[in-house]
Simulated scan of single mutants.
Amino acid sequence: MKIKMITVGKLKEKYLKSGIEEYAKRMSRFAKLELIEVPDEKTPEKASDAENTEIMAKEGARIQAKIGERDYVVVLAIEGKQFPSEEFSEKLSQAMLNGYGTLTFIIGGSLGLDPAIKKSANLLLSFGKLTLPHQLMRLVLIEQIYRAFMIREGSPYHK
């Protein structure tokens, strides 16, 4: 099993890197984790809607180039579906049982994601209506993926 996390922009904060490294280490017994950062586009101050759309399309093309043909793609989107952790674990298990060798998670940039990426996803996932920094969301996501694997094996970690 392979898990890819594709994100827009570079992770800069040491404390977030440290947390992500810790969960990546824990998760290594379940899956091979690949963290992919695609460059973000510079957004002009007071960018027009057309400029924002163009920026998201460029970032979307970079993301699309990293998605495999047979990946099960989960896009983080505020309009996505919310799940309790147990149900999220079940969704991931079902994807694996359905023959997907790679679970790919996508976190967009500060402007959001190209609609084409959202449209091609197998699942739109939301962690709620709150707006969280994209860099913090990486840590939250990797912890929830780890939790899903722990639930799957019946570990007390989830309790």
Rank of each mutant, 00 (worst) to 15 (best):
K58C: 13
A57W: 00
A50Y: 14
P84N: 12
V74D: 08
A65C: 01
I55K: 01
E41L: 03
V73F: 01
R62H: 13
T43K: 15
M56C: 03
A50H: 11
K58S: 07
I63G: 06
L76T: 05
G68R: 05
F83H: 15
F83Y: 15
I78G: 09
K66F: 03
A50G: 09
S48Y: 06
E59F: 03
T43V: 15
D40P: 03
R62V: 04
E59Q: 04
D71K: 08
E79W: 08
E69Q: 11
A50T: 12
A77F: 10
N52R: 14
D40T: 07
E59M: 04
V73W: 02
G68H: 08
G80K: 10
I63R: 04
L76S: 02
M56L: 14
V73Y: 01
T43Y: 07
V74K: 07
D71T: 10
A61F: 02
V74F: 08
I55M: 04
I78K: 13
D49V: 12
S48A: 02
Q64A: 10
A77R: 07
A77I: 07
M56W: 05
G68Y: 08
I78P: 07
R70Q: 14
V74R: 09
E41C: 07
G80S: 13
Y72W: 11
E54R: 13
A77D: 15
